[in-house]
Design a binder for these strands. Structure first.
Lengths: 209, 209
DNA sequence: TAATCTATGTAACATTTATTACAAAGTCTA
DNA sequence: TAGACTTTGTAATAAATGTTACATAGATTA
């Protein structure tokens, strides 16, 4: 079951030799929703490839304030951990399972070898960087140019896509942490969105209309 | 003079064969302070390597609001243009000469070839991504977690390092554009910093104490 | 079902940042 | 040097966001 999933998710990305190598050295790990997959300052010696689920990537400052940067979907990798592994430094971000998720963990040594001798791996790395860069720019746009009400609505729309459902099971407190603001502000703006008939609120639930 | 500069800036980064190739295919271009080197939506088919000077990388939204993301220094490249070139898409950022600067422009085809057959180039690309990622995170931290007075002071300190001088020749209006706020806000906060004896203000000039 | 806990609603107020308007100081040029 | 222009200072006010405090509604458990 596990190796077939590697085949299925990555056969259009990696060549067949590489798929076999991944099956051989990759260590499959599963995480429950809200599990911390990678934490800040944690040394990294494996690259995670996401097989199933979603992962949210967060930044945290010295005072413990959080900010959501972007989400990872199946078939993607965390470029943050790439840079960390290459530089043998520690993680600068936190990765949390947004849903139950499964990952293949690739030891750094293999990843370095493949980077030098496998073109499909090199292209994957390059494309990952490209996607992540775009997402970082998007995150910067949001916090720099958008007001909180717009950010909130964008966040909700993004969540509906990610979970493939118009009904979100989420608390105002959680949203406020992702967007780095206070619960009161989020409750206020959500009520405003409800008055504009864009959403419908109930306890632990938001329906996007 | 031009090729010796390539040698000088890059001989500790690239192997000697690659240096020769860069000298052969690289096109040296010079820019005056405030020249636009790369503009938003401009298609890119060359990778710039910075020989001399400094470049500031800006993001701009649909309404024309700008935001400084980071600076490039000699020996660095703009990873934004890497991702653009690889994806044959258009530039998502603007690059402006912070000082008079000179660059070697590498045609995309060469860059792609080297990526597959030259390890020193591959490592350079990877390290560039790593540095840029860190700078993007730093930019996100600033706008998400810091208040404008802190961002302003950090900006000034950063400029003194970049220009290797405690005396900055800059207008309040320019600062406000880099930080995406208004001139009035910057004047107010600068005056506050002066009252705290952290800086000294005069027309077109700020001394960092 | 009563007591308790969790999540949300909302008012009142503080702070930060944005906007408008205008004065004054410094620089440049006819 | 007078007038024009650019840059900076600052007041008054508006808008957005943050904070504190408390009420109420819904869920859970003894």
């Amino acid at each position: 079951m596990t190796t077939t999933m590697i085949q299925e998710k990555f056969n259009h990305i990696f060549d067949s030799n590489l798929i076999e190598e991944i099956k051989k050295v990759g260590n499959i790990r599963t995480f429950k929703k809200d599990d911390i997959i990678i934490d800040i300052n944690q040394p990294l010696n494996h690259i995670p490839l996401l097989l199933e689920g979603n992962i949210k990537i967060l930044r945290e400052d010295a005072e413990g304030n959080e900010l959501l940067i972007y989400f990872l979907e199946a078939g993607e990798t965390c470029t943050m951990s790439l840079t960390c592994c290459m530089g043998t430094t520690k993680s600068k971000i936190r990765a949390v399972a947004e849903k139950d998720s499964s990952l293949v963990m690739i030891p750094v040594l293999n990843m370095q070898k493949w980077f030098n001798n496998n073109e499909s791996w090199r292209n994957f790395i390059l494309e990952s960087y490209q996607t992540r860069f775009d997402e970082m720019l998007d995150a910067i746009d949001s916090i720099a140019f958008m007001k909180m009400d717009e950010r909130l609505y964008k966040y909700l729309i993004n969540k509906t896509k990610l979970h493939d459902s118009k009904t979100l099971h989420i608390k105002h407190q959680d949203i406020s942490e992702d967007l780095h603001t206070s619960r009161v502000v989020i409750s206020r703006l959500l009520k405003q969105l409800e008055n504009e008939h864009k959403i419908k609120l109930s306890r632990n639930k938001i329906q996007v209309l």
